[in-house]
Design a protein around this nucleic acid. Structure first.
Length: 898
RNA sequence: GCGGGCGUGGUGGAAUGGUAGACACACAAGACUUAAAAUCUUGAGGCUGUAUAGCCGUGCGGGUUCGAGUCCCGCCGCCCGCACCA
């Protein structure tokens, strides 16, 4: 155990704590109130001066790595951050008490668009803006008293960090994990710039208001799909992740077994012979009524060259954002081409070929067949264009004569009918039968169908046409092609002298950055001006923390020592992308020799979001809650500005800087202290649940801080009394110890299970128990009862310590301890104190509670039954009749069935 | 549109299929005080009732079970994600 000053004595204590023992419960000598403004900075300085939370890699204790998702430096922290970091801090402090060598670092996810937006709006350089924000947020975080190892801090925009990220990129290139391909971006034709999905509002650019177009660019990709199968199957092993996150990841990867099927053209005027579709429901092929191509399908492009109306339809589809949400929520539209195809299994039948806006080019083959009876999208489309709806799957117990599809497609189980040789087969058997049938048929030398495992997961496009990100370390040479920047020329630094007066990528128009020479042949060449998606930055920072100053991206031995992260904590909004990208990166870093583990996060906890109402003024500008005055008018909640201007109350959403619905914790911390705020965010809601922020209740948390302090100082005064007997009242002390050990067990279980709100409730109950016991102990202090009181109060302080660390240190010192409570080992549970000799069982009649009986623990069932039946209430209902049945659940409940 | 989650008193919430509302907030009454704050004590899901007690009650509608907040089916509402917000 580390002492916090050279001679092991307390450093100079804030003066209010120095008064000695006083007579108990005397108003004249009421203990002074706990003053967090004095105590919190004091203990923060003690921790910092003693490097209490700096983690040594050579510490012999077992390692434990707890990490909260690092913040984007938006400028100020909000209560969502406080919740996130407090949760992690409780775990870190608890694991330290359990004897672990805890790594609990902090950094900054510091690249990204807001810095460039600020540069445009306020003429401040993104670097300046970012580092200023970091400084402000760092001091806010420090005021919370988190047990962080600040010596490992870094920001992803530090040259030191993105240098190593460029090294990783080049290693990944060499390992074949990087590729280039064409993909679509949102293009603002007025600002001549690429827009993020977030910047497209109702199909228009947020700044220019111009209608957004889809435009194709050649971009850099990480080949995450190479790991699709492994990323999927390894989810099974992530047994300390929430089920919902595992389900979401599985669905995102979206493995499906399906069939690619060739449809022959009825004539090949255009030189086209077949179109290949992908389907996961080949069993419904007999119900096909059309074929639809993506607007980006090569065949669509080919016919559009001679079909002006189709070209216009495709252009219309491209006047839409690129996000899946936009595409899928748009009204389903199609264009009927002149093409028709032969029905693959119905001789002589043909199907029309449409181009449809809901068919995605990058899923399957970019073409589908539509079976309206059994797919809702196809049904909507068929109703709109008056296409046949032929049911071919009969639901169980349905009458084949009467069954029909109205407004809803039937996608449930059943057997094939109206389907020739498939009739009577269930869905899986029908899929196999049709696959075998088509695989055996040849069209122009190839089988008509091939089975294919398809993934919804796409490769990860990392190119961003922006300044404030990690430069992609590559040079384009006309003779040598794409040349990675050699290691000795890294890092590729972001130039400082950039202008944000015009939209677009400043790197692309920078006088010297773009133009360079080829490192291989020395001829003039162009430097890549795309920077990396900021998700790249956050996909390996957890590994960098294990050796934050290393010359190489990681020191593999250190990464292997600490990883996987034992407990990772963050918002459920990151449940898919960030976690999946990090899992990919772990595999990529494994393959490139930077570490041996392949899963980054052993335990995952998704905290609920902190949400708040949003507000907009007349002009539609977002307003912060602090700029809004709430009231009641005509029986409804209303809002105005302080000047009386009307304000629209919007929906409740997660706190975000862009919507300005954030609550800054500084005022609360200034008023009540960090411990009160920490206690408050932990106490009421289960941490995984979303909470709508309200300050109602913070007063209660504040009162508990004072009550806890008073409890300890009162106890200290009692403990200073001379015992008048040895044993005294025999039950006071033992009851207190029973409560203490029971509380220890419960609180430990709740902390391990991250049920902090329940731990808080347990602490309240235990505090109440001590409070009740104290007057009697003070009245007749005995050796036993005083010892019990000391143990109870010390445990109480230790229970509180992970949650309210400053208060706990003060209280601990108050009892005369010379070492920090944050280094004290977690108390043991003695099972002897947990034994109960009698239990209360509820007695039900027909499932309705009618009374209760107290019985010895583990009493025989027939004794319990007899006791239950002898209850007046039970006898009255039975009215002399024997019970039909009696169910006894040992030590819990008796149910009499009358 | 698709995927995921959530819904319990005035409020936050508790409850391995086994006594619904622990613990707290807010509220009310009382004690202390010239008074207030703070503190302490007590009360409380709703309805009926002096009380014993009875009935109702976990978003809505069904179902399984001796027993359902919990499991199943169908709805409603809200929140998150949908690949260039982080």
């Amino acid at each position: 155990m580390r002492r916090f000053s050279g001679d092991g004595r307390l450093p100079n204590f804030p003066s209010s704590l120095k008064s000695g023992p006083r007579p108990v419960y005397s108003m004249a000598n009421a203990p002074e109130r706990y003053n967090p403004r004095e105590q919190e900075p004091f203990w923060q300085k003690v921790w910092a001066d003693n490097k209490t939370f700096e983690t040594r890699n050579d510490d012999p204790r077992p390692p434990y790595y707890v990490l909260e998702m690092f913040p984007y430096p938006s400028g100020r922290i909000h209560v969502g951050h406080v919740r996130n970091y407090t949760l992690g801090d409780v775990i870190a402090r608890f694991q330290r008490a359990k004897g672990k060598n805890v790594l609990h670092p902090m950094g900054w996810d510091a690249f990204g668009m807001p810095a460039e937006n600020a540069a445009m709006a306020n003429k401040v350089h993104p670097r300046q803006w970012t580092y200023d924000n970091i400084a402000a947020m760092r001091s806010q975080l420090k005021a919370i008293g988190l047990s962080l190892d600040w010596s490992r801090e870094f920001a992803t925009c530090d040259e030191d960090y993105y240098h190593r990220q460029q090294m990783l990129f080049i290693d990944m290139m060499e390992a074949g994990l990087v590729t280039r391909k064409v993909s679509k971006v949102n293009w603002d034709p007025v600002d001549q710039t690429v827009l993020a999905n977030e910047q497209v509002i109702d199909g228009r650019g947020w700044r220019s208001g111009a209608l957004v177009e889809q435009r194709e660019l050649t971009q850099w990709f990480f080949k995450i799909t190479d790991f699709a199968e492994d990323l999927l199957t390894a989810i099974d092993g992530l047994d300390e992740w929430p089920d919902k996150v595992r389900i979401m990841q599985r669905n995102w990867i979206g493995r499906s077994e399906g069939l690619r099927v060739l449809f022959e053209m009825t004539d090949n005027d255009a030189g086209l012979e077949t179109v290949e579709i992908f389907t996961t429901r080949p069993d419904t092929l007999f119900g096909a009524s059309f074929v639809a191509l993506s607007p980006d399908h090569p065949i669509a492009a080919a016919i559009a060259r001679s079909d002006a109306a189709l070209a216009e339809f495709i252009a219309e589809c491209h006047r839409m954002g690129t996000s899946a949400e936009t595409i899928e929520t748009a009204e389903k539209q199609g264009y009927r081409t002149a093409l028709t195809v032969k029905h693959p299994v119905i001789e002589g039948a043909t199907l029309p070929v449409y181009v449809a806006n809901f068919v995605l080019m990058d899923y399957g083959t970019g073409a589908i067949f539509g079976c309206p009876a059994h797919d809702q999208r196809d049904l909507d489309f068929a109703r709109k264009y008056d296409l046949p709806v032929i049911p071919v799957v009969l639901p169980p117990d349905a009458d084949p004569e009467a069954f029909s599809v109205g407004a809803e497609a039937y996608s449930g189980p059943g057997v094939a009918y109206n389907s020739d040789f498939l009739d009577g087969l269930d869905i899986d058997a029908a899929k196999n039968a049709i696959a075998r049938h088509l695989e055996a048929r040849m069209i122009g030398g190839t089988p008509q169908a091939t089975r294919q495992v398809n993934y919804r997961l796409r490769d990860w496009g990392i190119s961003r046409q922006r300044y404030w990100g990690c430069p992609i370390p590559v040079i384009h040479c006309d003779t040598c092609g794409i040349v990675p920047v050699p290691a000795d020329l890294l890092p590729v630094r972001l130039p400082e002298d950039v202008e944000f007066d015009t939209p677009g990528n400043p790197l692309d128009r920078h006088p010297s950055f773009k133009h360079t020479t080829c490192p291989t042949c020395g001829s003039p060449a162009r430097r890549e001006t795309d920077t990396m998606d900021t998700f790249v930055d956050s996909s390996w920072y957890f590994a960098r923390f294990t050796a934050p100053r290393a010359e190489t991206p990681t020191i593999p031995a250190m990464a292997d020592k600490w990883l996987p992260v034992d407990q990772y904590i963050g918002g459920v909004e990151h449940a898919i992308l960030h976690l999946l990208y990090s899992r990919f990166f772990a595999r990529a870093m494994h393959r490139t020799g930077h570490m041996h583990v392949t899963e980054p996060f052993k335990g995952m906890f998704t905290q609920g979001m902190v949400t708040h109402e949003t507000y907009k003024d007349r002009e539609g500008r977002w307003l912060a809650p602090s700029e809004v005055v709430l009231g009641f008018a005509e029986g409804q909640r209303s809002a105005t500005t302080p000047g009386g201007e009307p304000v629209a109350i919007g929906s409740v959403e997660k706190m975000s800087k862009s919507k300005r619905n954030v609550i800054d914790p500084d005022d609360m911390i200034a008023t009540y202290g960090a411990d009160t705020v920490r206690w408050f965010v932990l106490s009421d809601s289960p941490p995984e649940r979303d909470v709508q922020w309200t300050e109602a209740g913070i007063e209660g948390a504040w009162r508990f801080v004072q009550r806890a302090h008073k409890l300890v100082s009162d106890a200290r005064d009692i403990l200073a009394l001379d015992p008048v007997t040895i044993a005294g009242n025999p039950t006071i002390g033992s009851d207190l110890l029973k409560a203490a050990h029971k509380a220890t067990r419960q609180i430990e279980a709740d902390l391990v299970g991250l049920r902090f709100n329940r731990a808080v409730a347990q602490i309240y109950e235990f505090a109440n128990a001590i409070h009740k016991a104290m007057p009697a102990i003070a009245e007749a202090p005995s050796l036993d009862s005083l010892a019990a009181l000391r143990e109870a109060v010390e445990r109480f302080i230790q229970f509180v310590a992970p949650m309210m660390p400053h208060l706990a240190e003060t209280c601990w010192a108050l009892l005369g301890h010379e070492h920090l409570v944050c280094n004290a080992p977690w108390p043991e549970v003695d099972p002897a104190y947990l034994a109960e000799d009698s239990v209360v069982l509820a007695v039900q009649v027909n499932g309705k509670r009618r009374g209760e009986i107290e019985m010895p623990k583990d009493a025989a069932n027939d004794q319990v039954e007899a006791a239950a039946l002898s209850l007046d209430a039970v006898a009255r209902i039975l009215d002399g009749n024997p019970p039909r049945k009696v169910i006894v659940v040992p030590n819990r409940i008796v149910n009499v069935v009358a």
